[in-house]
Nucleic acid binder design. Structure first.
Lengths: 237, 237
DNA sequence: TTGATTAAATCAAACGTTTGTTTTAAATAA
DNA sequence: TTATTTAAAACAAACGTTTGATTTAATCAA
């Protein structure tokens, strides 16, 4: 069990600080090297803690991993909530137009791109989530429910609204996933992009280039949906 | 150095078969678990070989990894060559139309999607390449040159031709990367897609769904580029 | 304000496994 | 024989984890 004092504001500040330091260091290691390749000893060193600290505070290496996932899910969910909420109420209320829907969709996709390169000097969060996608662990359910699902569902609803189909249609889900994939791809296939653009391996494109990427993704997405909508208006199906 | 016989057809069929079996088994392990988490003992067991076989045939675990990368680069490059070559000659020759360029681009993107889910019962190749993207090793240069670069360059050239800019423009590279990312995203963010669609975790969508994904990606891409081209025709920039 | 008490937190050291690799020797070809 | 190839055993190093003692800091009786 963790430290727990009377009830007020000082629940053993010492131990809590150590927990935080371990989670931060672990996030970097797990993100960069993965669960197995990351070593408890290295994490503790970089957190300025003893080797035994992980098992004391989190029970095991896996316990630390789950704590990192929870920290990440909470933190990143808060980071996207301010842009996600307006679109959700927009979808809930009655009056919707193609232009407004496009506007909301563009805003969400832009936020997604920016979140990929948010912390300039630390791309660990995005890598952590990417890793959970290709080999999900018990932490994936948490990350999906709190982080991926809200964004994915909202974008799906906007896509469905724009092209005039139901948000529950498989087609809507796949089209939304294709749009989201554009954002993900600039992180997941970063090495290839770097080689093709000549960008330095300083772990991120510059601020200007991030804006350029966001503009391209938004322009492509809206253009694609307009074509689909036009096609559905003309053709049958 | 690796085993190398005279030249003819029987270069010690025994040893060569062992090499192949090791490479196949290693591809699965490296793809699924990554370099560190994959164990030489497990690979040898599944290849029906002894623990010493890896060091004898490939010098080290890293040597085996590089051999897998080379095997992969050659194999997958052959798999996409038949669809890549026609587009390259099309780009080299003079007569190009928007329709023909779209046709070639659609063909390449479709082939990319199919290659993601090509071997139904073995997604290791795609995972191997994805892993090399987020944490490149010395094998990345090989994979990039033989596998990623030709496809990326050709798609970039088609994109540039379609929207009327130079293939060397950063904009063309980024737009091409966004289109390619759609294909990659269905493998890289597979877990989220599965949860959203309810597809079983049988490691791949069904054949019908792969076709659906390909159709969506092609439709989105062409629609996006048409919008960009139309925008450039009207607006300045 | 003291001094004893107690729980939380940290520490160095060592645990038993498993890792990649090497060595030694037997078996199989030419 | 002579040179390869396999098999089994042994290697040091690194892994996650546990242990028991020590330090830190808050609590409470006096």
């Amino acid at each position: 069990m963790a430290a727990r004092r009377a009830s007020s504001e000082s629940p053993d500040a010492r131990g809590e600080a150590a927990r935080q330091a371990l989670i931060i260091a672990a996030l970097e290691s797990f993100g960069r090297y993965g669960f197995d390749a990351a070593s408890v000893r290295d994490i503790c060193d970089r957190a300025g803690a003893n080797v035994a600290a992980v098992n004391y505070h989190f029970g095991s290496k896996e316990g630390l991993y789950l704590a990192v996932a929870e920290f990440l899910a909470n933190g990143m969910a808060m980071g996207t909530a301010h842009v996600l909420e307006p679109s959700r109420v927009y979808l809930a209320t009655g009056k919707r137009t193609a232009e407004a829907t496009e506007q909301h969709l563009g805003g969400l996709l832009r936020a997604l791109v920016l979140s990929m390169f948010a912390n300039v000097r630390d791309s660990s969060p995005a890598l952590f989530v990417l890793r959970e996608q290709s080999e999900p662990t018990s932490a994936f359910a948490l990350i999906f429910e709190r982080l991926l699902k809200p964004m994915h569902e909202t974008i799906t609803a906007l896509v469905a609204d724009r092209i005039g189909i139901a948000a529950t249609d498989l087609e809507a889900v796949i089209r939304a996933h294709a749009l989201i994939s554009q954002c993900v791809g600039f992180k997941a296939a970063k090495a290839a992009l770097q080689k093709r653009t000549g960008w330095s391996s300083a772990d991120d494109p510059g601020q200007d280039n991030v804006e350029l990427i966001a503009d391209v993704v938004v322009e492509h997405s809206i253009g694609a949906l307009r074509a689909v909508a036009a096609g559905k208006r003309r053709g049958g199906k």
